[in-house]
Write a protein that binds this DNA or RNA. Structure first.
Length: 490
RNA sequence: CGGGGCGUAGCGCAGUCCGGUUAGCGUAUCUGGUUUGGGACCAGAGGGUCGCAGGUUCGAAUCCUGCCGCCCCGACCA
């Protein structure tokens, strides 16, 4: 039965087992692709709905662009094609036929496409080719569009949610008349991601800028939110790019300014994906299973009856339905699990595995004493409370658990950002502790590459709030004026 | 694409070296009963192209050849 590998024993095995046993997703028959199961999808839908609201509140509209991109579009922007070429799925034919020799189905060699199509790894190229037709003057700007879509990147090694060949995401693509406005847009969306991560996922993130090595293919600047997982590895949870005029130039998108000049448009793009599911799992969950923050939980409260006979079950059911009605009136989702084919102990374990924030259990003793047992998933703490106070308590717990999860994750992160003043310290922290290493860097790709080669650690970001501080590069000893964050990353 | 491991019931595995009853165990499923405050117990039942294709043999899950797939570790990446 469901007994999880502990995090200490084998973290990645623990992760895989949670995904499978909590019914979040499974491997599909297609290599590298996943089936997102109803419970996992329900969490994703909650994420999506909140983000979608934020996007609309910040002036964006949803639209939809094609899955297929003409191969020639990909090559228009040099850095972009170089970044993605190695992982593109390509459609070459449009028809199958029965092979007369074998009776099997084969690709019809006569149905070759005149121009091959790329399955989008991201949509900048087809979107900018479309924007070209939408933009003539400054009056057409800004264009603020988001799309919810699937994308395909042919990955060599995949892990459910963290890296799959196909994944779900949203990609915002905006066009602006000035550089300043585009940068503001990219920064604003980064703030939206930060707010979502911290207040809904209860996952603390560090906002920063990527170094040239880690920058999105085709961007001038890539901003990111970086999170720290329980095993001390960093995870990029979202990115927002200032694309400069790169795509405008590649697709010849110009606008007539107020002053009558013809200028290239300034662009941004930004996205988060189903990878956030992986981030959620690895931020909060424990050896008993998944832990879902109340604000994203598809089911927030479960009520489990404990009984010996039908009359007890009936009485408990009556009380439970009363509580359910009150909780639902307060907007709290709740399920009463009176399934007779499972015992209470089994249910306890099952709902813990699925990360339901609060469990209520009621048995014969509670009936007699007008009490109910309340158990919170984040701490496992049990309390026996009077029936008439349970609804208020649960309402408070929704807030407390959300906050506690965030605080706990933030304390962990704070404890795992370590300063390294020299190369020996850097190596020692990486080996013995992990987490983020805050260190000086000389600003060169060469040094970053060398450090990666020696340690596998990369610069996760240059934090936006980093203090100016004179120092020496932890590797080369060259002068540096601020610290950056290194880590082993997912 | 390199290195390692593995394909046997829904899931997890034994059996393979050394060929020989009707292919077995745990779990899940179904039936009946007893149970029910932390993953219950007893009894019974159903469920298999042994990854695929050839070959050797009186006889192949087991030996040989080829192929396919998956997992882990590396190189690449959100």
């Amino acid at each position: 039965m469901a007994n999880l590998t502990t995090r200490e024993a084998d973290y990645s095995k623990w992760y895989n087992e949670i995904v499978e046993q909590a019914d979040l997703a499974q491997h599909s028959d297609v290599k590298g692709c996943m089936v997102i199961k109803p419970y996992g999808y329900a969490i994703w839908e909650n994420m999506r709905d909140v983000l979608d609201r934020f996007f609309k509140e910040t002036g964006h509209q949803n639209a939809y662009f094609p899955l297929f991109i003409p191969k020639s579009y990909m090559s228009r922007e040099a850095a972009h094609v170089e970044g993605f070429a190695k992982e593109c799925a390509v459609v070459t034919h449009y028809r199958l036929k029965v092979d007369e020799a074998t009776g099997g189905i084969i690709v019809d060699p006569d149905a070759k496409l005149a121009e091959e199509l790329i399955v989008r790894p991201t949509s900048e190229t087809i979107i900018w080719n479309t924007y070209k037709g939408w933009i003539q003057s400054y009056r057409d700007l800004p264009i603020l569009i988001n799309q919810w879509a699937n994308v395909v990147r042919w990955e060599m090694r995949t892990r459910l949610f963290l890296r799959t060949s196909e994944f779900l995401w949203q990609e915002g693509h905006t066009a602006h008349s000035t550089k300043t406005e585009a940068i503001q847009e990219a920064r604003m969306m980064l703030d939206v991601y930060e707010k979502f991560a911290e207040e809904w996922m209860a996952m603390p993130v560090i906002k920063g800028v990527k170094t040239a090595n880690e920058r999105f293919a085709g961007a001038e600047d890539t901003y990111c939110i970086e999170a720290l997982m329980q095993d001390g590895k960093a995870l990029q949870a979202g990115t927002s790019h200032f694309l400069g005029q790169n795509f405008a130039k590649a697709f010849d998108v110009k606008f007539a300014s107020k002053e009558g000049t013809m200028d290239y448009v300034w662009a941004t793009s930004w996205g988060v994906s189903t990878r956030l599911m992986g981030a959620l799992i690895m931020t909060h969950s424990d050896d008993k299973g998944l832990v879902v923050p109340p604000k994203l939980a598809p089911l927030q409260v479960v009520i489990v009856p404990i009984y010996k006979d039908d009359s007890q079950l009936e009485q408990i059911g009556e009380v439970a339905h009363g509580i359910m009605k009150e909780l639902k009136a307060k907007g709290i989702s709740v399920k009463y699990d009176d399934d007779d084919s499972k015992r209470s102990g089994w249910k306890f374990a099952e709902y813990e595995l699925k990360g339901i924030p609060v469990r209520l259990a009621m048995g014969p003793r509670d009936l007699e004493n007008k009490t109910i047992e309340v158990v919170r998933r984040d701490t496992g703490e049990k309390q026996l409370v009077a029936l008439d106070s349970v609804v208020g308590l649960v309402e408070q717990l929704m807030v407390d658990i959300q906050q506690n999860l965030f605080n706990r994750a933030k304390d962990f992160r704070t404890a795992n950002i370590t300063k390294a003043e020299n190369w020996d310290e850097f190596l020692s922290i990486l080996k013995n502790k992990g987490g983020f290493i805050s260190a000086h860097w000389d600003g060169t790709s060469e040094t970053e590459d060398k450090i990666k080669e020696l340690t596998k650690a990369t610069i996760r970001c240059i934090p936006l709030d980093a203090e100016q501080e004179e120092g020496m590069c932890v590797y080369s000893g060259a002068p540096s004026h601020q610290r950056v964050l290194f880590a082993i990353a997912y």
